[in-house]
Design a protein around this nucleic acid. Structure first.
Lengths: 208, 208
DNA sequence: ATTCTCCGCTACCGATCAGTATCGTTTGAC
DNA sequence: GTCAAACGATACTGATCGGTAGCGGAGAAT
């Protein structure tokens, strides 16, 4: 029961844990969690297998830690992005710009939360819980921005934008043929603009 | 090289192949392709392992056949759906209604093409080729509808709607709290309505 | 009725999987 | 300088992986 407490550990312990988690995260993201074996993480990180299992009781726990790490880094960047704008629309545009650039980075391979969720059928899997909380948090934040911007039904508009973002995350290079930031911004502006009017549709011009 | 030709086979051969592929497809979709072993497919389908490998040289080929089957069934339903409407906007609304209902079906677990793509890092994997072609086909069809509906930049608007759809596919139950068909229809109408005007933004009202 | 094809079955292959045991060594804390 | 804690290394477990070999039997074609 002398399990290594996460708080106040040996500096060696901290470093080993960090290196293992960082290596695992890179491998998991680049290859998919099921395709990466524990031995591979051992070899690439230089951390002994026994040490990894001292910090993470199972591979599933390591995967869960991977997603929590991705989650934290994602919101950290998110906060930095929206910090560059003062208006709601400006924040949404900044987010679109960020995402549009993010999805065309080298080695980008989709949303890690969605990718992992696709690999595990069990909705009660700890990693799937993290993924659901991550997506709920995104909706919550988008809803707050929409509400602050005067959107009539902020939760609905926020969900529409969230779907747009998730689609962009999973676009697998298809957006590279476009100006992704502009495409996303244009779409988001339309969704928010439409959300400021009464949502009982109607008024939209009919098409042939 | 007396490989079983796909055309004009024994009825026994046809049935074995069909049962193997159907069982594999169900298992692959429900659990993820890497989580399903060949032995499991053998047990659940009643088709011998040797027979499966006579029809599909590798597991990867079986996965590829699974995605091609999903692709064919998807477009079959798609055609039936858009056949119920006469106008472009009517077709888009019908598609939104179809997708909104589809994603809340029991056992729905996201887009099989995106799910499989998430499991293989190699972009040259045969299954990833099928997935890319599937998404390209969706964009092509949406673009045709948009163009016919008088949208100024049909390929851009089609991409925006495609992202919306993919987001809905991967929404993992988050849409169950909403009227998914209405939410998608509303979003699609806004995207198309905005696409009919000059796309050099501007005009959209500024938010606080 | 014979033949030829394809089936299902059992057993097996080497490789890899997640996870554990043991042990000697390093290292921060006091 | 001593001690306890956490490290790295090696070796191993039983299970499972994708894929193959060899068999006997069923069924369609002639």
């Amino acid at each position: 029961m002398t399990a290594s407490s996460p708080d106040r550990p040996d500096p060696r312990s901290r470093r080993a844990r960090l290196r293992a988690l960082e290596t695992a995260s890179d491998l998991f993201y680049a290859n998919g969690v099921r395709a990466v074996g524990m031995e591979q993480i051992v070899e690439e990180s230089g951390v002994a297998k026994t040490t990894i299992y001292r910090h993470f009781p199972t591979k599933d726990a390591l995967i869960e830690a991977f997603l929590k790490k991705e989650d934290a880094e994602f919101w950290s960047q998110w906060d930095a992005v929206i910090g560059t704008a003062t208006t709601s629309m400006g924040q949404i545009e900044a987010l679109c710009d960020w995402i549009g650039k993010r999805v065309r980075r080298n080695g980008y391979r989709g949303c890690p939360q969605l990718n992992v969720a696709a690999e595990f059928a069990d909705r009660a899997h700890p990693a799937r819980l993290v993924a659901r909380q991550h997506k709920a948090e995104m909706h919550r934040r988008l809803e707050a921005i929409c509400a602050h911007g005067g959107v009539v039904h902020p939760e609905t508009t926020a969900m529409q934008i969230a779907l747009l973002f998730d689609g962009a995350f999973m676009s697998d290079g298809r957006l590279n043929a476009y100006d992704a930031p502009a495409l996303l911004e244009h779409a988001a502006v339309l969704l928010i603009g439409g959300g400021r009017e009464r949502p009982d549709k109607g008024a939209s011009a009919e098409l042939a």
